[in-house]
C-alpha cells in the first residue's frame, strides 16, 4: 500500500513536471530565437554610391550642341572635373558604385545540435564601379560622352567557386 502511494506520488510529480514543461514550451520557443539571433545563416549586404545613370538618362546630350549647364541641369553636378592639356577642354566625371556581398554559414544549422559552434562560411560578391564621362570643349559644349561599363560585376554570389 505504501509502495503504491509512493509510486502514485512519483507519477503525479512527473505529470506535473511534464504539464509545467508544456506550459513553458511557448516561452522556450520564444527564447530560442533570442539566443540564436544575430548569428544568422545568411547575410546579404549592399553598398550604393550615388544613383546609377542609365543610357536613357543621357540620351539628351548632343555633341556640338549641349552645354555644360544643360548637362548639370539634367544629371546634377559632376563628381569630378579634369582639365585636358593645352586648355583643350575638360572631362566631367559622374561616379556611381554598387557593391553586393553575400555570406552564408552552412554550419549554422549544426549549432542546434552541436555543443560547440560550427562555422562553414562561403561568401562572395562583386563591386561594380561605373562612370559616365562627358568631354567639353573650351566653350563648355559637349564633344563626346561614354560609360565605363563595369556595373555587371555587382551581384550577390552564393557560390564563390564559379569562374565568373
Amino acid at each position: 500500500m505504501g509502495e503504491r502511494n509512493a509510486r502514485g506520488k512519483a507519477i503525479g510529480l512527473v505529470h506535473r513536471l511534464v504539464t509545467f514543461g508544456f506550459r513553458l514550451l511557448p516561452l522556450a520557443t520564444c527564447l530560442v530565437p533570442l539566443v540564436l539571433s544575430g548569428c544568422g545563416l545568411a547575410s546579404f549586404n549592399r553598398l550604393s554610391v550615388n544613383d546609377p545613370i542609365k543610357q536613357e538618362d543621357v540620351a539628351f546630350i548632343e555633341p556640338g550642341h549641349t552645354t555644360f549647364t544643360q548637362v548639370v541641369a539634367k544629371l546634377g553636378t559632376p563628381d569630378e572635373i579634369i582639365p585636358l592639356g593645352d586648355d583643350e577642354g575638360v572631362v566631367a566625371f559622374y561616379h556611381f558604385l554598387d557593391a553586393k556581398y553575400t555570406r552564408i554559414n552552412y554550419g549554422w544549422p549544426l549549432q542546434l545540435v552541436s555543443p560547440v559552434p560550427v562555422d562553414m562560411i562561403l561568401a562572395g560578391g562583386g563591386l561594380g564601379t561605373n562612370m559616365f564621362l562627358v568631354m567639353f570643349d573650351r566653350q563648355w559644349i559637349a564633344k563626346q560622352q561614354s560609360f565605363a561599363k563595369h556595373m555587371l560585376a555587382s551581384r550577390h554570389r552564393l557560390w564563390p567557386f564559379k569562374d565568373n
Binding site: 540564436l36 544568422g40 546579404f44 549586404n45 549592399r46 553598398l47 559632376p78 572635373i81
Partner: peptide
Amino acid sequence: LFLLILNFSRINIKSDDLY
C-alpha cells in the same frame, strides 16, 4: 535588419557638389 536566419544590410552614400 538582423533576423534569426537571414541578415540584410544596405549602405547608401550620396554627395553634394558645389562648383
